[in-house]
Design a protein around this nucleic acid. Structure first.
Lengths: 112, 112
DNA sequence: TAGCTACATATTGGCTGCCAATATGTAGCA
DNA sequence: TGCTACATATTGGCAGCCAATATGTAGCTA
């Protein structure tokens, strides 16, 4: 998958992998990798600022935890985050329907 | 649909609406609008440079035609353009599968 | 004959938002 | 000592679409 592919859909991805429970940044990267079958490879320069922003926006909250001497920041969804995830999914569907209907009108999701 | 939504998928859209026959720029805009159910509204500052680029890349060829005193440039797919369209469709499917499998794992196209 | 809308093409500059590169540190293993 | 994995953070770059702007034809209306 080419670089920059997630542009415009990053927030949804982050919220989605946090739906089943808290994760820290590094684990989010591997979770996205795993769930996408290796297709999506987010960078730290991408997700850390994004997680920060989502927390400032109230969609996430975070807690520092310690593993030995290591510190990691675990993020979890807030109620607003859950709502934001639903919204992200809705707009993803609208987006794929719109592009798909032009690009591939015969495919399911296309306008026919 | 929010501005900038087509980012990364514009070429495919343009090639797709030209699949059934030649169109000029203005008609491409309305064709994309119509096929997307009004969701996608491309701007001239978006498509004219893109059409130009696609022609330089050999995916399109163009001919000027006259309607009364008006001049319009009709674009049509080349063989390379048809191949590019197939490629754009393939990468669109890969893209939606990748994002979808993270964002919406239960939906068709998701990884499950 | 001025003004409006639709049709039609083209260019410039700006900004969003992701990424590459870089920095820093712990921890285990060879 | 050096490598890899784990872990977070920041800076600068830039691709690529869009907004704004410019220019022109053509038909309608008042």
């Amino acid at each position: 998958m080419k670089s920059d592919a997630v542009r415009g859909h990053l927030d949804g991805l982050l919220l989605a992998v946090l739906e089943q429970g808290p994760l820290h940044g590094y684990a989010i990267i591997t979770a996205v990798q795993r769930r996408s079958g290796g297709a999506l490879d987010l960078r730290t320069g991408t997700i850390y600022p994004a997680l920060n922003r989502l927390e400032r926006q109230g969609l996430l909250r975070s807690d520092w935890e310690s593993v030995g001497e290591r510190r990691r920041r675990a993020y979890e969804l807030t109620d607003a985050g859950r709502a934001g995830l639903a919204e992200a999914r809705a707009s993803w569907r609208a987006f794929t329907a719109a592009i798909g209907s032009v690009l591939d009108p015969t495919a399911p999701g296309g306008a026919g």
